[in-house]
Amino acid sequence: MKRVLVTAGANGIGLVMAQAFAGAGCRVWVTDVDAAAVERVPAGIRATLCDAGDEGAMARLFSAIAADWGGLDVLCANAGIKGPTAAIEDMPLEDWHQCLGVNLDGAMLAAKYGARLMKPAGAGVMIFTSSTSGLYGTPFRAPYVAAKWGVIGLMKTVAMELGPHGIRANAICPGSVNGPRIDRVIEAEAAAKGMTPDAVRQGYASGTAMKRLTDAGDVAAMALFLASDGAKMVSGQALAVDGMTYNVDP
């Protein structure tokens, strides 16, 4: 039975990932900074209140995993925030730091402590949640884009370092995923561009070959594949789950 950790796993994409792994018979542990969401996590999934960007909290989390589970097979470094939406000339440095702190520092800390559990076992899978913004860029989202490009660079370096120890690392790059988070992004972008939210949403959908937004279940399905033996030679890859985005400026 695989042991799976999903950071930011009490809400959104993370929760759908966690439920997919649990449905596949895995033992699943999630973390989140949202205390109310942690309380709502379905029975059968272990949940801990934890800030993915706080090294002390992450060190304690992985110590608990080592004590209770004896190791970790799959790490889903999923924690992230949308960050500010603003023109680069108006970008507050404090907001920049906060966005990179959660999205990039959180991924690094997960990999750091995950490696300490996986290397002795000589096996493991790390799955990082990046974004199509980390592949193409997105106007008015400079901190988020920089962080998600950084996640891909981190993943590729981790894949190189840990491959000789039997550990694979990949990044999933979702497109615009249906749910409350993309609703907030669309509202902020609409305000920044002087457009209506409906027009921005339609622009996101029309900029894909499939002409629709992605569902969280599509992302979870990719995570299950990457964690499986079917992906045993897939490592160091940034894999888009976006319906083939070709216009990134709606």
Rank of each mutant, 00 (worst) to 15 (best):
L135M: 13
N78A: 01
V125A: 08
M91C: 14
H97I: 03
R116P: 00
I127Y: 13
M91K: 07
A86C: 11
K82R: 15
F128W: 09
L75R: 10
M108W: 15
G83C: 06
F140K: 12
M155G: 00
G70T: 07
A147H: 11
F140G: 00
P120G: 03
I127Q: 07
G134R: 08
P143L: 06
P120Y: 13
Y113K: 00
K112F: 03
L100R: 14
M118T: 02
T138M: 13
K156S: 00
L109H: 00
S130I: 06
A107Q: 11
S133T: 13
Y144R: 03
G153F: 07
I152L: 05
P84M: 03
T157E: 09
R141C: 13
G70L: 03
M126W: 11
L104D: 04
R141D: 09
E94T: 14
T132D: 11
V74L: 07
V102I: 15
L109Q: 00
A142G: 06
A123C: 08
K156N: 01
M155I: 02
T129Y: 12
V151L: 04
H97V: 05
K148C: 00
Y136A: 08
T138P: 03
F140N: 12
A121I: 06
H97K: 14
Q98V: 09
S131M: 11
A77R: 04
V151G: 06
A146K: 01
A77H: 08
G106Q: 04
L93K: 06
D105S: 15
G150R: 03
I127L: 13
L75V: 01
M91W: 14
N103S: 09
G83E: 06
L109R: 04
T85P: 05
M155W: 06
A115Y: 04
S130Y: 09
P139M: 05
D105C: 03
V74T: 05
Q98M: 08
S130T: 04
K112Y: 01
G150K: 04
A142D: 02
L109V: 01
P92Y: 13
I88F: 15
C99G: 09
G83Q: 08
K82C: 03
A142Y: 10
K82D: 15
Y113G: 00
A110S: 14
G150Y: 12
R141E: 13
A107W: 04
G71Y: 06
G71T: 02
G114I: 00
L154P: 00
H97A: 10
G80Y: 11
A87V: 06
V74M: 05
G153P: 03
R141H: 11
V102E: 09
T132G: 02
